[in-house]
């Protein structure tokens, strides 16, 4: 349920396993939601720290996503670029409640700004 702190986005099942969906934030960047093979949900600003590729369009593997533009691997948990690359994408805390995906409202606004 949407509250002052949390935004109710939808059902976990709406996000494909090893896939992603986006949340459009009026006046800001999209937020990308990811669901890993293990069923964990993560949220990041939908922008690669490298050249702003849409991370939501990348291939999700393990706990990371490969950016579709230049194959940077971004950690879903921390937003940090993995391997040799350096950079970080803001993360948004996610909570699952009764199968619903809840996003931290304040962090969503910060990440989208």
């Amino acid at each position: 349920m949407t509250t002052a702190e949390w935004l109710d986005i939808g059902w976990v099942d709406q996000i494909p396993v090893r896939g992603s969906r986006t949340v459009k934030v009026e006046g800001g960047d999209d937020i990308a939601l990811f669901r890993t093979a293990e069923g964990k949900i993560f949220a990041l600003r939908d922008r690669c720290p490298h050249k702003h590729g849409r991370l939501s369009q990348g291939i999700v593997h393990g706990g990371a996503v490969a950016c579709p533009l230049h194959n940077w691997r971004i950690s879903l948990a921390t937003g940090e670029a993995l391997g040799e690359d350096k950079g970080c994408t803001p993360t948004v805390p996610v909570k699952i409640d009764g199968g619903r995906v809840l996003l931290c409202r304040a962090s969503t606004l910060r990440a989208a700004a």
Partner: peptide
Amino acid sequence: APMARFTPQEEL
């Protein structure tokens, strides 16, 4: 399609 749209100051 996006999964949701969020307009600050309003609800989803």
